[in-house]
Design a protein around this nucleic acid. Structure first.
Length: 1187
RNA sequence: GCCGGAGUGGCGGAAUUGGUCUACGCGUACGACUCAAAAUCGUAUGGAGGCAACUCCUUGUGGGUUCGAGUCCCACCUCCGGCACCA
């Protein structure tokens, strides 16, 4: 190890002593224990619970744990009730392998390892709630893992299937597809073999669609909800939720809009359509315009608004729609059009019409006022269109299932007699802020009712009606009256003539407070969305920007993580075609996701593993060679290094497919490159596919190109069948109906064509396969079922699988002598006769236990739920507690888990959601990932390389705070980074600087800020002139401190811990130069640093006289006034080169600044004798002079 | 091959999103303290030229847009992740 600080002069700072001390104190005070029955806002921060390996804690664990620890500590101090739990993902191979080697029970090893991990984690001072510790190997925990499995079994989502599995001959274990990397075992790198085996499966593919589409789900709890008043939803009809767009296309020449005149229904709409998975609204809108009207040359003008939840009755589908819709405005650039599909033509025709004619003819008309208000340069007439708001999230949320009490009512905006202020009502018993509202009595006019209401509720006697603003519909929950209300509001605007006012009645006074709100504040004053709409759109005539408060995706994950999941699920949409084999009573379904080239298909290939191969050749001259071929290829595929391109082989079966669409017969070949488990394992081939092309060339199978490039030379080559060709911009020649169409755009129409002709049906395929859930191992959760011969006879499937009754859970892992799996691939459990042989729970006859265990992924798929209620004996977790704690607000983990673990646990979560056992559709709101820490040599840390850094050594030599700080400072959190001992010294020095700063703290809180580095100095000329010292205030230091509060607060949120620390270092460097520091200033620094270095800050916090823990002090507030600069440095550029700078007052005029720049010595030198062509002034930044 | 992300000093890395490139830290050099060393403190530190003031060059390469580009656009090179027989 290189030299390290910590010599005699820093003897005061003894991390070993203070860290231990505070860790004990925090634990005794239960500082980090999450409170279950709290009214406070919750924050659930989660890190992936570690696998307690024998090697002890890895420095990589510390990196992610510290990051989340910082966030958790900050949240606590922001007033959140924080859950930051920890546990052990303790089932797994290394422990079992260790047991095989040593004979020590895995449970014993696990106990030892978790003890070590626990000790190490505690020594680093993480603010985990240790009272909620879970362990997947604890029977009290895996009881529920088994229980969840039984629910899968009950719903038919867990099933047994014989299949070829990936077998690792070294670990003697079956591997999931996901655990095979490059044909090798993910753990040990041994080439994987294939083996036929009965396996437990979980039907994750049943959830593929939801796992995919929910990635793009919108958080609908926060968006305005509008009910169409012209086509209101019909009771009794089912409601279908969809993400949709409305595309408004305007022709600038005529000012008319593009509408769709529906053929079977009496309405005209804008172009409307659904948003597909992963599609953004602009491309969805463009696509719909093209598909529905054919107009291809349109240009985006703006996004008009959205999303808005809109409910209406969709007569064309005879269902209620809950559309989460946004509107996009386009401008027509040219008339160029494409052919519209027959399907669309049958539905509607495009028409150009005036906006006013759209009135009342538009199906989804209630959002219109919102869209139209945002339109540039047009004044749409929307009289008669009344928006209807339903309060779905604000205080006053409508209660489901309760009837609405309908009333005519008024809503009044009342202006001050002299100032630009308006009356607002602040309700006393509920968090509700509104305008003035009230009912209209019989025989009363709206104006009369409003005046009466104003006098009654505010006491002001002389309101004068200025304007009738229109009508508004609102559905809300009237809190004091405890009922759902449906109000038809007349919205009126009054001004007060004078300040004459009566005293309020007792009753009114107790209800709400009358406050004056200025124009700007009013934008956000009202709590109900409907009132905000009244204020902003009806009164101020400005559109509400719904997007700012609404368009939040449900999952706050980075696009790249979502993309990984999408790739993994691998959705493709195409057609399923069915074809008959010539001269045989046999048909095949085949899947085609690129049907554009269906006329080019000239042969068929079938996977060697396909069961129908034998049937095809049975009893023919081809039987012998084909079956031999199949055998050989199967073997070859199992060998390592099989290359599907190089080793492409095939054999003709002597059979043909009757290919109706092209009126051809396609020879059927068995081909090595065909996937047995995608689609149906048999597929028609064409010229326009690389593999098919290569295969056909190899075996001289005739080809028939139908797609050609524009370039005539290239096209000729394709015609001569010299090169494979398939590009998006190629054009089709066949079928003739589609001649000249581009490959990339014709797809949808071709599918329609195929479907219309009855050759096939629309189908969706996924790359995702069902999850192989069995492991033939000891150290995992036993699968809680029993096999009963007796029951098998009665079982229609003949399986005799009897679930262990829930009351008998958990099925405990028995103690074993030998942990080695058997050679025939059975779990070591199979050898324990006493355990295996049981009474059938159903028929009480003799039966055998299932000896397979669950994979590692099982216990980790739901652990975050158990943390909410870790001691529950009757449920995996109580729904009420889950309602409070879940979803996880922030989940940080490794990139390596962003596909599998995340996908699996989302699957389990959705399944539990369907059983109404968890309250949310997704488990993790926010997901981030950390980069790995590499060894000093830049390689992965591993025992064999001898480059492992042991955290214990670091804690011992420099302390836990330094270790934490170093890991946060080393570089960007999401990037991989190499360990560097040298840099630790710098961080330790920083802590010592803070430590020594204490000596300068003036506990009387009087201070003179003396020196400041010019880089930071916002008013450096002031300081330069010595004025700062003379006037004896510390505003300059406070300015820097407040900037730092903002910087550190923001950086923690975005996980830019390295820059947060560097800004803290800057302040500390500055304070160090001061002779004295005020207590306040020092406290803020400690408070900002506390989440990073909890021990040393706690020690100093107490040393300057605080009695309570720093970790429950409130997070420093950033004061923008304090951080404001009065002067800024302006740079002067001449022809783009920096030539000088000068200080300027922030509110100096542009012209003044310009003259100052031109008058500058450094500037004169460069512009002398030359003509100044242009001067650009960028406010608060620079002046650019062009000569 | 496809999809992401990134290339900035001797090193780890900053850069208010188009506005002083190299903050902060490490390392190095010199100085102070010391009998000496360590620690600590101070000064300097992108490159080239110059005694100096100062000048020119510089964010993987080449082009473009702009008063102004590390940042935007085009082409290329390199590296890192993920997927990869998915018809």
């Amino acid at each position: 190890m290189k030299k390290q600080p910590g010599g005699p002069t820093s003897r005061n700072y003894d991390p070993a002593k203070i860290e231990k001390k505070w860790q004990k104190k925090w634990e005794a005070d239960k500082l980090y224990v999450a409170k279950d029955n709290s009214k406070a806002k919750k924050f659930y921060g989660l890190i992936e619970f570690p696998y307690p390996s024998g090697d002890g804690l890895h420095v990589g664990h510390i990196r992610s744990n510290t990051a989340m620890d910082i966030i958790a500590r900050k949240r606590r101090r922001e007033g959140f009730n924080v859950l930051y739990p920890i546990g052990w993902d303790a089932f797994g191979l290394p422990t079992e392998n260790y047991a095989i080697k040593t004979g020590i029970q895995p449970a014993v090893v696990t106990k030892k390892n978790t003890d070590t991990f626990r000790r190490q984690l505690k020594e680093i001072g993480f603010s985990f709630d240790w009272s909620r510790e879970v362990n997947t190997t604890d029977p009290k925990y895996y009881k529920w893992t088994q229980w969840i499995f039984l629910q899968f079994l009950k719903k038919g989502l867990a099933y047994k299937k014989s299949m070829t599995i990936n077998w690792c001959p070294k670990d003697l274990i079956g591997l999931a597809n996901e655990e095979v990397i490059d044909g090798k075992c993910e753990r040990c790198g041994t080439p994987v073999e294939k083996k036929e085996k009965e396996q437990w499966m979980l039907a994750i593919t049943k959830y593929a669609d939801r796992l995919l589409s929910d990635l793009d789900a919108i958080d609908t709890s926060n968006i305005p909800h509008i009910i169409d008043s012209k086509n209101s939803p019909k009771p009794g009809k089912k409601t279908v939720e969809r993400r949709t767009i409305q595309a408004l296309v305007r022709d600038p020449k005529t000012g008319k809009f593009l509408g769709l005149k529906w053929k079977k229904f009496p309405w005209t709409t804008f172009v409307i359509g659904g948003v597909e998975d992963g599609e953004d609204i602009i491309s969805a809108a463009k696509r719909e315009v093209l598909e529905e009207t054919g107009y291809s040359d349109i240009k985006l003008t703006q996004i008009l608004g959205g999303p808005v939840k809109s409910e209406y009755f969709a007569a064309h589908k005879d269902e209620n729609r809950l559309a989460i819709t946004s509107a996009v405005l386009f401008e027509l650039v040219s008339d160029s059009k494409r052919e519209v599909s027959a399907d669309e033509k049958a539905k509607h025709e495009p028409v150009w019409m005036e906006m006013k004619d759209m009135n009342d003819k538009v199906m989804t008309c209630s959002e219109l006022p919102i869209w139209l208000e945002r339109m540039p340069d047009s004044k749409p007439d929307f009289t008669g269109k009344v928006p209807c708001f339903t309060q779905v999230w604000e205080p006053g949320t409508v209660k489901q299932g309760q009837p609405f009490v309908e009333r005519n009512a008024i809503l009044a905006i009342v202006k001050h007699w002299s100032e630009d202020k308006f009356i607002g009502l602040k309700w006393k018993k509920v968090d509700w802020r509104t305008l003035i509202t009230g009912g209209i009595e019989k025989g009363q006019s709206a104006e009369q009712a409003a005046i009466a209401e104003i006098i009654e509720e505010t006491g002001y006697l002389h309101p004068k009606l200025k304007k009738d603003l229109g009508k508004l519909e609102s559905k809300f929950f009237h809190v004091p009256k405890n009922e759902n209300r449906y109000a038809h509001f007349d919205v009126l605007y009054f001004e007060l003539k004078d300040s004459k006012r009566n005293a309020l009645s007792e009753d009114e006074y107790s209800k709400h407070e009358v406050v004056w709100v200025d124009r700007k504040e009013m934008d956000s004053f009202n709590t109900p969305m409907a009132m905000r709409y009244v204020w902003k759109t009806m009164f101020c005539k400005k559109p509400i920007d719904f997007s700012s408060q609404a368009a939040k995706p449900l999952l706050d994950w980075t696009e790249s993580i979502k993309e990984l999941q999408r790739n993994w699920i691998g959705k493709s949409e195409g057609v399923n075609l069915s074809f008959k084999v010539k001269d045989m009573d046999l048909s095949f379904e085949m899947y085609d996701s690129i049907p554009q080239t269906f006329m080019a298909q000239t042969f068929t290939v079938i996977a060697p593993e396909h069961e129908a191969v034998a049937k095809l050749v049975a009893g023919t001259e081809f039987e012998k060679p084909v079956m031999e071929f199949v055998q050989r290829i199967k073997q070859k595929k199992a060998e390592k290094g099989f290359d599907h391109v190089r080793d492409m082989e095939g054999i003709f079966t002597g059979r043909y497919i009757d290919y109706g669409p092209a009126k051809r017969q396609l020879p059927i070949w068995v081909a090595s490159y065909v996937l047995a488990d995608y689609g149906s394992g048999i597929v028609n081939c064409s010229y326009h596919d690389e593999r098919d092309y290569a295969f056909a060339k190899k075996y001289n199978i005739p080809l028939h190109p139908v797609l050609f490039p524009e370039d005539p030379i290239l096209a000729e080559k394709v015609r001569k069948q010299e090169i494979m060709y398939r590009e998006p911009d190629g054009t089709l020649e066949e079928p003739v109906q589609f001649k000249g169409r581009r490959w990339d755009e014709v797809r949808k129409d071709i599918i329609d064509y195929i479907v219309e002709n009855g050759w096939g049906t629309r189908t969706t395929q996924y790359k995702l396969r069902d999850w192989i859930f069995s492991r033939q191992r000891y150290w995992g959760e036993p699968i809680p079922v029993v096999h009963c011969q007796n029951c098998a006879i009665k079982d229609p499937k003949g399986q005799g699988i009897v679930p262990v009754p829930e009351k008998d859970l958990p099925v405990l892992l028995p103690k074993v002598k030998n942990y080695k799996p058997t050679e025939n691939g059975e779990s070591p459990l199979a050898a324990i006769k006493k355990w295996v042989n049981v009474k059938c729970p159903k028929c009480k006859g003799p039966a055998k236990r299932e000896t397979d265990t669950m994979p590692n992924w099982a216990g980790s798929s739901w652990y975050y739920l158990r943390y909410a209620d870790p001691k529950n004996k009757t449920k995996f977790a109580d729904l009420k507690k889950l309602k409070y704690w879940t979803p996880v607000d922030w989940y940080n983990g490794g990139m390596e888990h962003t596909t599998l673990h995340l996908l699996y646990s989302r699957f389990w979560h959705k399944f539990l959601y369907d059983l109404n056992l968890v309250p949310t559709i997704e488990p993790y709101t926010k997901r981030t990932s950390h980069g790995p820490i590499l060894a000093e040599d830049g390689m992965r840390m591993s025992k064999s390389r001898g480059n492992v850094i042991n955290p214990d050594t670091i804690v011992k030599s420099v302390g836990a705070d330094t270790l934490r700080l170093y890991e946060m400072f080393m570089g960007p959190f999401d990037q991989s980074i190499a360990w560097d001992m040298n840099n630790i010294a710098g961080v330790r020095r920083f802590i010592e600087k803070v430590w020594k700063l204490k000596e300068k703290v003036d506990l009387t809180n009087k201070v003179i800020g003396k020196t400041l580095d010019s880089r930071l100095r916002p008013t450096s000329s002031l300081a330069d002139s010595g004025l700062l010292g003379a006037c004896g205030n510390d505003t300059v230091i406070d300015n820097v401190i407040h900037k730092t509060i903002k910087k550190v607060s923001d950086d923690i949120e975005t996980m830019r811990f390295n820059t947060a620390m560097s800004s803290l270092m800057i302040v500390v460097n500055e304070l160090e130069k001061s002779e004295r520091i005020s207590k306040d200033q020092f406290e803020i620094i400690l408070q900002l640093l506390a989440p990073f270095a909890p021990h040393v800050t706690e020690e100093l916090w107490h040393a300057i006289g605080n009695k309570k823990s720093i970790h429950i002090s409130s997070w420093p507030k950033y004061d923008p006034e304090m951080a404001k600069d009065s002067e800024v440095k302006m740079m002067v550029q001449v022809n783009g080169k920096v030539r000088g700078s000068f200080m300027v007052n922030v509110d100096q005029s542009e012209e003044e600044v310009k003259q100052m720049a031109l008058g500058l010595e450094e500037t004169k030198k460069w512009i002398e004798g030359k003509e100044v062509k242009k001067v650009i002034v960028v406010k608060r930044k620079l002046v650019s002079i062009v000569i």
